[in-house]
Amino acid sequence: MGQASGELERIVHEVANLVKQGYALTNVLKQVAGELIKDSSFNKMVFNEVRDSMVKISPGNVPVGLFTQCSMIPGYYLAGKSPSVNWGDISMHLLGKMLHNLAINELKARIGNRCVEGVEVMYNYDSWTLRGKPDLDCGDYYLEFKTIMGRVTKSRLLHDLIQAGFYSVAGKKNTYILYLVLIDGIFRTIVPIEVIPEVGGMVLYAFRLWVNSVKKGNIGALTAKTTSCRVCRFRDICIMRSRNPHEIVLPGRELLDDYLEYMKEEVAKAGVRVID
C-alpha cells in the first residue's frame, strides 16, 4: 500500500500508546476513525483492500476461523456469494487487528526467542483442506490470543474453544487460548485456557460431515452455529434467517461442555459476564 502502510503503522503506534495509557476503548476507536476519515482517498484505499482480501473458499482452502463461526459461511463463499461490508465493519476490523498485534508483539518482546510466529496447520479430507494459523508457536505448545470485553457469549467461547482444538489436533500439541480481558475498555488481565487435541477431533468430524453435504450440493445441511447471527455479514441473505440455527450434535460433546464450564468460571473470575 506504499505510503498508506506507513500511515497505518503510525495509527497502530498511536493506538498502542493509548491502550498502554489506559484510555477507554471507545476513545481509541474515535482516534482511529478520526485519522482514517481525514483522507478520503486513504479511506477508500483501506476499504477496497479489506474488501478485496475477503477469503476465497475452495476445496483446498477452508479457513477454520470461518468454519467454526458457522458452517454456512464457507458454503456461501463457495457459492460465490459476497458478504456485506461497510466502513463500520472495517473500522472494528482494523482496531481489533491493532490490539491483537500489540498483544503479540508485547509478549514476544518479553519472552525473547521462546516463541515464533505460528505457521499454518492443515487437515485434509477427500481433496478438501481445513486450515488455520495459530498466533505463536512456542515449541511444545501454541498460543492463540483473543480479546474479550466485560461480557461475552457462551457461543463465542465455544467458537474459540473448537478453533483452538483444531490447532491442537492438526498441529499435534496443546494450544493455550490467552484471553486479553478489557473492562470498561481498559486492559485488566490475561486468562489462559489450555485446549487438548481431543477437542479438535470433534471439529474434524464436523468438517467431514460438511464436505460430504457440500459434495451433494447442500451447503445448508450442517448449521453448526457458534457465534451470533446478528453480526454475521451474510445475515441478509442467509437461508437460515427465518429459522433457528442449532449447534451440531458432536461426538464427545460432554468434553466440550466441561471445557465450556471451565472457561466460563475462569473468565468470570476476571470480571467477565458470560451470557447465552
Rank of each mutant, 00 (worst) to 15 (best):
I148M: 12
Q21P: 01
T153A: 07
R10I: 01
E117V: 15
P83E: 06
I90R: 05
H13A: 12
S40E: 04
V203H: 02
S91L: 15
D126E: 14
A206N: 15
E117L: 15
N48C: 07
E49M: 14
D52H: 12
A170L: 07
V50K: 11
V169Y: 03
G80R: 04
T26W: 08
D276P: 01
S82K: 15
V181S: 06
D52F: 12
G185Y: 03
Q31C: 09
T153K: 13
K172L: 06
Q69P: 01
H159S: 03
Q163E: 12
R235M: 00
M1Y: 11
P59A: 09
F42Y: 14
V28E: 05
L182N: 06
N218K: 09
M1L: 14
L256E: 02
C138S: 07
K264G: 06
E49F: 13
E117T: 15
L36D: 06
G201I: 03
R188Y: 00
D236V: 08
E261N: 15
M1F: 11
Y259I: 04
E194L: 13
N105T: 10
A33W: 00
T26N: 11
Q69Y: 09
E14L: 12
C232R: 08
I193G: 06
S242K: 10
T175Q: 03
V32Y: 05
L178P: 01
M202G: 13
H100N: 13
L182I: 01
T189D: 14
K56M: 05
I37V: 15
V249K: 15
S40K: 13
D257K: 13
G165S: 08
A33M: 02
F47P: 09
G2R: 03
Y77V: 02
T147E: 04
R151Y: 02
